[in-house]
Design a binder for these strands. Structure first.
Length: 649
RNA sequence: GCUCUUGUAGCUCAGUGGUAGAGCACUCCCUUGGUAAGGGAGAGGUCGUCAGUUCAAUCCUGACCAAGAGCUCCA
């Protein structure tokens, strides 16, 4: 057989040769340094026969990060082996530890176990130490093909492995990987020797996980680890974790008094405190302005509606699991609204519509209620009652693409305003295999095509995810990366041919006949709760001036300056800015510290010098620390801050 | 919803089978100060809730409530 090397050279090798054979054929140094390889772009290990004619590259200790999924997988095995030894030392037989799956994942690996007694977090350092011992033993990792019968016999004690093996085809060989006395059923790939595994790993946590992810199955104990090619990367990762903790919106939400969640009110039902309410109001004001420019019309609809409304829309039938139970009043049933669209459809239907009226764009900051599983609730990012920046566009089919593009444009503008420049789009399309979708497949295909055309026109990266559509139509989700590189799903745009059908809404066309409009559902923020939660973490609580709940703190140096401070404050208030005077009996240093801790972006320090000349001394928070300007004329500063607020700079 | 962990003052957290402590925040007094903590005093808790064991429970047991991590889910 032959393989092709990166420089285009062909290499002749005996049949069944592995990447290690290829490396040896090139040179002994390379063979000694090799860790893994790629064949036709896929990661492979050094022990597996290469496919005939493959283009291969070798991964060596010079670029170990390229083999990250491989060493993470091998570390997973090493974890598995270490846990076996850990229970062995406690006196359990080796059969007592049963194993689920253990793949490599982003940044690390995990392994599921069925253990004779639960593993505690305190045990992790000891297990990690055993892992390092195993690495120190320099065990060769070998690969072997075994027949199905022999495989079943070898793992007879482990029902999970038996289940996995049973499902493999009868005629194909089953691969085992062995390191020392540890053997596991595994497809690979793996490192050639435990001694080559990087030391930059750490066991992080344990948790429960259902066998094969199905909640009807037994729960296994999962151990998570992170692993990198170098200590530097591991340190960076751990530092980012710390940073994420520091920015946690639940923590900042409490410290900055943005919101609270009170068990007496109900879980998943956040209370917006005065400071958080300012954030919300600034966001809605911003979006209202943008929507006004784009000819949206505001509407307001109630929080509950007749059950028949939701029967007609299909929400009652299709989402029965995640609706709040209906409320019976007199002889009628009502439901808390899980979506605003049925109400907007009825507003559309409230009068005859001409083709000249379309598109009709109805917008509402509408609060909806969904019964999320209690384990899913999380701060502001996953709640049971939330306000969508919702709008529904009723358009003629020929207007769909223009409207869709205009919505995309608005969305990109919104995200850029918050410095969320790293955006990708996810097109959720229908899974032809599934029957959860309603409507005509031809219409689906048309809508999917139009979405993809629109996204391509905008030129931003996108992926297509079959099976990710809503039941009534394809959708486009926006996924942004925040400053820490974490991905968040924000708003969504959905094309809907179904609801107009279900509610039988029409418009009169040029031809005098009734025609069916198409609907676009869209929410650039998604929900205000979630968006604010993400913004808190994105900014780490350091909001730009226009969003900051507390914009300006005036700090009199001594209390004889309080009156002057108050006159300045009233001028800021007159132009609608949020200002306070710190007239506490603290010293100035403590006042500065307090304003810093409260992340107030602008501090104005006023003493004798400032008062005499109607000046202020400005201290502003910056990402690097702070910036001071002394002897600034107050009228200039007022104009400057007012302009920054107005332009949302 | 499931598994595990946690629940002590507004916040962060010590602690004990004999009904509780620190720091910060808060209130008051002194201090009138120049860019991240001046000093002193005081107030503040049914130790998540309800049962049980015990002479005695914040501590042990159970149930419930809530939170956290993970799994499953997300129009």
């Amino acid at each position: 057989m032959h393989v092709t090397l990166p420089d285009g050279k062909q290499l002749d090798l005996p049949q069944g040769a592995t990447a290690l054979d290829a490396a040896k054929a090139i040179g002994p140094r390379l063979a000694a340094d090799a860790l893994a390889a790629t064949a036709n772009g896929d990661l492979v290990d050094l022990m597996t026969p290469l496919p005939e004619g493959a283009s291969i590259t070798l991964i060596t200790k010079k670029n170990p990060a390229d083999a990250a999924p491989v060493f993470r997988h091998s570390l997973g095995h090493t974890l598995s082996q270490a846990v076996g030894e850990f229970y062995g030392r406690k006196g359990y037989p080796r059969e007592a530890v049963k194993r689920g799956v253990g793949p490599s994942i982003e940044n690390g690996f995990y392994q599921d176990f069925d253990l004779p007694e639960p593993l505690k977090e305190e045990d992790l350092p000891e297990i990690e130490a055993i892992m390092r011992e195993i690495i120190g033993r320099n065990l060769d990792i070998t690969r072997a093909d075994v027949g199905k019968a022999a495989a079943l016999e070898q793992f007879a004690y482990d029902p999970y492995k038996v289940e996995l093996i049973s499902e493999l085809p009868d005629d194909e060989p089953i691969t085992f990987y062995t390191q020392g006395d540890y053997v596991d059923l595994c497809r690979g790939p793996h490192f050639p020797n435990t001694g080559r595994l990087p030391g930059a790993f750490k066991l992080m946590s344990t948790s429960g996980a259902y066998w094969r992810g199905n909640e009807k199955n037994p729960i296994l104990q999962r151990v998570y680890g992170v692993a990198f090619a170098t200590q530097k990367e591991l340190d960076e990762y751990l530092h980012n974790l710390e940073e994420a903790k520091r920015r946690d919106h639940r923590k900042l939400g409490r410290e900055l008094e943005l919101f609270t969640i009170d068990p007496l009110v109900g879980k998943g039902l956040p209370l917006w405190l005065p400071n958080g309410t300012i954030l919300r109001e600034e966001l809605t004001r911003f979006l209202r302005e943008q929507q006004f420019q784009r000819d949206y019309q505001g509407v307001v609809t109630p929080n509950i509606g007749n059950l028949d409304l939701f029967r007609t829309s299909g929400h009652y039938q299709n989402y029965s699991d995640s609706n709040f139970s209906p409320i019976t009043v007199d002889d009628e049933q009502y439901m808390l609204k899980p979506m605003n669209c049925p109400f907007h459809v009825r507003i559309y239907a409230s009068k005859p519509r001409s083709y000249r009226d379309l598109p009709v764009r109805l917008a509402e900051f509408g609060t909806v209620y969904r019964y999320e599983q209690s384990g899913e609730l999380n701060g502001l990012t996953r709640v049971r009652g939330f306000t969508q920046d919702d709008a529904h566009i009723f358009a003629r089919p020929d207007q769909l693409k223009t409207e869709f593009l205009s919505v995309l444009d608005l969305t990109v503008l919104v995200l850029k305003t918050f410095g969320l420049n790293d955006v990708r789009f996810r097109v959720g399309t229908r899974d032809p295999e599934s029957d959860k979708y309603v409507g005509d497949p031809a219409q689906w295909a048309r809508a999917e095509r139009q979405i993809i055309e629109a996204v391509e026109e905008v030129g931003l990266p996108y992926t297509v995810e079959p099976g990710d559509a809503a039941f009534y139509g394809p959708k486009l989700d926006f996924v942004v990366k925040d400053v820490l590189g974490r991905e968040w799903q924000l708003g969504t745009i959905q094309v809907d041919y179904n609801l107009p059908e279900r509610f039988d809404i029409t418009y009169t066309g040029e031809d005098g006949q009734d025609h069916r409009p198409v609907m676009i559902h869209r929410a650039p923020f998604g929900s205000l709760e979630r968006f604010v939660g993400i913004l808190i973490e994105h900014y780490g609580g350091d909001f730009p001036l226009w969003l900051a709940p507390r914009q300006i703190m005036i700090i009199p140096i001594a209390d004889r300056h309080n009156a002057y401070a108050e006159t300045l404050a009233s001028e800021f208030k007159a132009v609608g800015m949020r200002v306070e005077v710190d007239d506490s009996t603290n010293r100035m240093n403590a006042k500065v510290r307090s304003a810093e801790l409260n992340k107030i972006p602008v501090m104005l320090i006023v003493g004798d010098q400032e008062e005499a000349r109607r000046e202020v001394s400005v201290r502003e928070r910056t990402p690097e620390g702070h910036k001071e300007r002394k002897g600034v004329a107050f009228t200039d500063l007022l104009a400057e801050l007012q302009e920054r607020y107005r332009t949302r700079a």
